[in-house]
Design a protein around this nucleic acid. Structure first.
Lengths: 280, 280
DNA sequence: AAGTGACTTTTCACTGAGTGAAAAGTACGA
DNA sequence: TCGTACTTTTCACTCAGTGAAAAGTCACTT
């Protein structure tokens, strides 16, 4: 593959990456702000030749990963959404956690968040919010920074040292309204998070809020997700929320098979379809 | 690409399909029952050589479409889930419809479903259910038949004639508890659905239920989704539910930009980020 | 009607990315 | 120690994928 057109001796290929990755990178160009892209946008953003982009986009469309609108633009397809709903760390934890999130929400009537780690970010898996609660910055499916959010700090505190080092090395601190925390302070904060079993983060933007997050453990003891509640500052003091959030997080962990005679839970659905698989 | 190993003149490749599609077909092997697959299962199910499967699975993993567990098995990754959450017909309609689904649920306390069409099936986009409501057969992200479900009949009634023909040609009728409807009766039923603006379907399995579904229209007038309520038989008579469901469906349609001076809605997020994009 | 600019799609000669049989490595149980 | 099943590496072969260029399409402008 990869030719130089008609003239010989020209630059061969677009990238050193395999076709499959290049095709997937097209999917990666879609964002919250850019939910529909035309061919030239896709081509430009992904850095691929138009002809190549067209062919790949067609293959993706053929399978259902993309859909083509009548105006020629492409959007992410339902088929992809369908497959993605099988993601254990996506809809999987969500299904198990949902009832507990609802309990927490019913009791407090504030925002309740569930997030998992993906690379050096957190991804928001679910959010319950009343229309009257304070404004929140993040949407389901969106990414959150690890440094400046409560869920992020919980996930970071329990992550491997390599990841922590990577995050510390990042520029960071640019998040508005959270006060750019010096690297040393953050390291200390993470230690505190690990000991206390909860992270407390204050923000001033987009509104004055306090977030309290706690870790959710999987069957093997790893931290697989973080649960958090976001309340307006000056509401219930944080130290009263900590036990509430920790208790809910523990309940979810137990349902995931944590410390429960290694029942397998969502890590072994074929043998024990008890936990994740069912329709509640 | 595609070689015959060392010996010359042997069958060349695994399939006539492009690499990208073959890679995506690996994703397609994951189902509700099989959320984690090892290499040989993937290889066998997809009909690809082990070496090829390994390479493709690695590429998918590299990008995040798959994740590899410590036991060597693969699962669908959060990155894919993240991208899929940008699907206008997936999370897109869901976001807009959710408040109305909630209203319907609050008022009736029965199952509320939202589904879109994907190929010759319906895909369940969202479901609200109390723990006390009747049993339902389907899960979010799962597929529903078009012939035998209320949402399916709504989607089918408003689909193009080619699709209708295709569905009529299928074996069908094998769904338990819905009474295999003769093709002619179904065709008549669909006409009724189109006129009355609602589909009513009775089931006896897994429990005795009545479903009432109504169409949701997009900005351009097409039916983009179907909304339905599922109540135990002998509860509120169906004819009383029809106006309720239709009203909710119309409210959602309006929010999608239906008949509202072609505001664009979710089909044109870049220009008018009003509807789908926001975090409610 | 003819011209302009931007986008999509087709064409085609070239070649290295992808292929899969076979072999080697790994893990587990008898 | 041997046997079985799965994962991973190797490697000679070649065709699927590539992208520059050209052609087609569409919406505006003059």
């Amino acid at each position: 593959m990869a030719g130089a057109g008609r003239v010989a001796g020209v630059v061969p290929q677009g990238a050193g990456q395999p076709v499959v990755v290049r095709a997937l990178s097209l999917l990666g160009q879609f964002t919250e702000q850019r939910r529909a892209l035309n061919l030239s946008e896709l081509s430009r953003l992904a850095g691929l030749a138009p002809a190549t982009t067209l062919r790949l986009a067609r293959h993706l469309t053929e399978w259902g990963a993309l859909e083509k609108l009548e105006d020629g633009r492409y959007v992410v397809g339902v088929r992809l959404w369908e497959i993605a709903s099988l993601s254990p760390r996506g809809h999987g934890v969500r299904q198990i956690a949902l009832p507990y999130l609802e309990d927490l929400y019913e009791v407090t009537r504030h925002h309740v968040l569930l997030a998992v780690r993906e690379g050096s970010d957190a991804v928001l898996i679910d959010r319950l919010s009343s229309r009257t609660a304070t404004e929140v910055a993040y949407r389901v499916g969106g990414r959150l920074p690890l440094r400046t959010t409560a869920v992020g700090q919980v996930l970071l505190a329990h992550a491997g040292p390599e990841l922590q080092a990577e995050v510390f090395a990042q520029p960071g601190g640019a998040e508005p309204g959270s006060g750019s925390m010096p690297a040393k302070d953050l390291r200390a904060a993470l230690a505190g998070v690990k000991h206390s079993g909860a992270a407390v983060v204050r923000r001033t933007h987009p509104s004055r809020t306090v977030s309290v997050a706690a870790p959710v453990h999987g069957a093997d003891g790893d931290v697989v997700a973080a649960l958090s509640i976001v309340v307006p500052d000056a509401a219930t003091p944080a130290h009263e929320l900590v036990p509430l959030v920790r208790a809910a997080a523990r309940a979810i962990s137990r349902n995931l098979g944590h410390q429960a005679k290694a029942s397998g839970a969502w890590r072994h659905p074929p043998s024990t379809p008890s936990a994740v698989s069912g329709t509640p």
